[in-house]
């Protein structure tokens, strides 16, 4: 693995809810190397978005707060950094693309104005240079005839074009880390394929690190180098993409892989992990997956299971790793 550019260690995030302070992200650690794509996967509500927003220090406070841990970008601590300093980093060194492109783009300004503003803020360059840069990045994301499109408003673009424009804006300052929270989930598969191709080629050219949040294992298989699997606010397994799909070590990962409809198995009953994920205010004791785990034993319910390092840069949070042989993807 390349030298880590982004390191998250023991991150905890809490929200004030009807049930008091609830910890929705608990002890999350991972790192992303230069030029590497880390996939963050897990079911809805597992804390993927909260984790990625924490990296940008964009958790809404209140109701949220970062209750502990450390987030380092190129060795600099982001937790507790002053807002002006963060603003210098956001959009410049670390950029983000959201699921709904409308969240990243302001409907009241043209695409050109928005990209130019980011460039001028961080680069302090002239209007003309900013415009040239905007044309350049729009070209990068394959918006046809970019110069004339600078004056277009977001709503004049199709969903796929908007998402590409949002990516262009994120790329405008050559970020070292790109955080993409489900950037293709709202898109059609054919458009998703375009965007994934684009991200891949951009990464090859510029060598940025990507934290790619998704719940689609197909997309992970397509794009990611390493994968972190989240369940109920915790990372339960990290591994390289090939290891993870071939020989998952955590029962939850196995469940997810088995649940993907397999090609050529018409009419067979689909595998499903029974039950639903727990609510963050009523986390099960011990292993948080035990109520749904087919391999659970009484001991699994008793005490917290630590994330253990295995050979080959893998980490697994299951007390039965050694005994279990789990099935990977076909």
């Amino acid at each position: 693995m390349a030298a880590p550019i982004l390191e998250v260690e023991d991150l905890g995030v809490e929200f004030l809810t009807d049930h008091g302070w609830v910890r929705v992200v608990d002890g999350v650690s991972f790192s992303v190397g230069e030029g590497e794509t880390l996939g963050l996967v897990g079911e809805s509500g597992s804390g993927k978005t909260v984790t990625s927003l924490s990296v940008m220090q964009l958790i809404p406070v209140p109701p949220g707060r970062i209750s502990g841990g450390s987030i380092r970008f190129a060795g600099r601590e982001l937790v507790g950094m002053s807002e002006p300093q963060l603003e210098d980093i956001r959009g410049d060194d670390i950029a983000m693309v959201f699921q709904e492109s409308m969240t990243s783009l302001n409907p009241a300004f043209t695409i050109g104005e928005q990209i130019c503003e980011v460039v001028r803020r961080h680069r302090g360059c002239s209007r003309r240079e900013a415009r040239d840069r905007a044309v350049e990045v729009l070209e990068l994301v394959q918006i046809p005839d970019p110069r004339s499109r600078l004056g277009a408003f977001p709503h004049e673009f199709s969903g796929g074009m908007r998402q590409r424009a949002a990516i262009a804006m994120a790329l405008a300052c050559d970020p070292k880390v790109l955080i993409a929270d489900e950037p293709t989930t709202a898109l059609d598969v054919t458009v998703q394929a375009q965007v994934l191709d684009l991200l891949r080629s951009l990464q090859q050219r510029f060598g940025m690190a990507i934290l790619f949040v998704t719940h689609n294992l197909g997309v992970v298989a397509d794009l990611c180098d390493r994968v972190a699997v989240m369940y109920a606010g915790r990372i339960v397994e990290t591994a390289t993409v090939f290891d993870l799909f071939e020989s998952p070590q955590h029962p939850y990962t196995e469940g997810l892989l088995q649940a993907m409809p397999q090609l050529g198995e018409r009419g067979k009953r689909l595998a499903a992990i029974p039950g639903t994920p727990p609510m963050p205010w009523q986390m099960p004791t011990g292993c948080r997956f035990h109520p749904r785990c087919p391999y659970a034993e009484t001991a699994c319910t008793e005490q917290d299971i630590p994330l253990r390092a295995l050979a080959g840069d893998r980490h697994v949070r299951c007390r039965r790793v050694e005994e279990l042989t789990l099935e990977g993807a076909q």
Partner: peptide, 24 residues
């Protein structure tokens, strides 16, 4: 069904809409 006990247990803690409104 594939729904399991845990799916129901979760709801054991839930309360009626009116009571929740009141609590808020």
């Amino acid at each position: 069904s594939d729904a399991t006990a845990s799916e129901f247990e979760q709801l054991g803690a839930s309360v009626s809409a009116r009571r929740r409104f009141l609590r808020r």
